[in-house]
Nucleic acid binder design. Sequence first.
RNA 1: GCCGUCGUAGCUCAGUGGUAGAGCACUCGGCUGUUAACCGAGCGGUCACCGGUUCGAAUCCGGUCGACGGCGCCA
Length: 431
Amino acid sequence: MAEERFTNIKEILDGQHTGKEIGIRGWVHRTRNIGKMVFLNVRDPTGVVQAMVSSDAVESFEEVKALLVESSVKLQGEVIEDKRAPGGFEIRVSDIEIVHAADVFPIQEDQSVEHLLENRHLWLRSTYMRDILTVRSTVFGAIHEYFRDNGYKEFQSPILTPLACEGGSTLFPVDYFDDEVYLAQSWQLYAEAAIFGLGNIYTIAPSFRAEKSRTSRHLTEYWHAEVEAPWLQFDELLELAEGMVCHVTKKVLEQDADEIKNLREGDIEYLEKVKPPFHRITYEEAISILQKSGMDVEYGADLGTPHERELTKIYDKPVFVTHYPKEIKAFYMKRAEDDSKVLGFDLLVPNVGELIGGSERETSIDSLEERLKEEDEDTSIYSWFLDTRRYGSVPHAGFGLGVERLVMWLCDLEHIRDAIPFPRTPSRYRP
RNA sequence: GCCGUCGUAGCUCAGUGGUAGAGCACUCGGCUGUUAACCGAGCGGUCACCGGUUCGAAUCCGGUCGACGGCGCCA
């Protein structure tokens, strides 16, 4: 190449270089071969532009003619505005360097879900995955930003842990020098110990669930955004969750408008309405609403997928469901004034269901021990955790959010596996 | 854990008892304005695996494996 200066393809498509001699580098997205002319659609992370290579303009014409899809190239030429070219602009190539002539690319137009998952490492090159992963990056950044701006410190807990947290059958066992430990499924119990020193804290960390959940909303390895704060009351907890979801949504709409429009087929009206306050209903109200709309549910049963779907259909925004009966929620949730209910909530959104689950935490050591025994947990393993209720126990609260579920909801994805680069599900751990 | 669908060429699929097929991809030939280019030719198979029924099985039966979809469980 005569000159080693390159521009982003998006700038060409925006008309910033029309009439000028420029260079680009990228990958061959598609080729069309007309004898003494070759059209290369060239992709970089910002877009796709057509390059026209004529036999009388380029010495290496025969090699260019033989290029296969996903070959990497550097090229330069004049940018011409031309309605015949896809995107309206074309580069008349004067010089081209073949960086690497690719083998036959395994992914073509017709693709099955399975084939794309087997070739996930190559499918990451698609516009679809690029758009999602761009949004995902913004989501992670926005979560950090929200908590830090609100005075929360980032705190890390161990991934290897002896704790079961919410029932032992859902953990991945790991051989720890002949002892059995588990991959963590939550940061929460360690966080409850940390708030006594640090105050308000949060994390974004991997969590692992060994449940064989065969649904479009479950991963065995997912990223878990969790928060824990001393003195925080139940209504403040809901506001914190609401604020975070709104902040992330706003940030994504600002920063990734193009990607979101691509992924949601232009439908961003719903996301633009995501502003406080969200709807708040109690479990009891939810049951009665569902019964009125003809669904078969009894008080005391946990809300199933069809029930959650029905509830999210009724409201134009995410909806909090609060005050569940204690029997269907985790041992660490604080009892409400009505002793049969807990100060816990789920935040439900369309297409995903439960996006966040959280609660005020039980502060009484006696209640905790009682609940652990009821669930046949070995209380000795929890003795360090119970210390948090022995030395200056305080009211506190927190929640956990599935980051992939948030991405799935924002991007309106059919399946959560597309919200993470290399998904892990009960039936897949490759590539 | 439960229910269901599927497995045939590199990819997407057709083929319901009688010699294994198509489109795309790839290779070769043609074409100076293509838009998932087009035209002609070629290459390409352990019909997932094991067993059974039958003169004969991709096809029917039993089992195994794998993937996908849904429920439950959860974030």
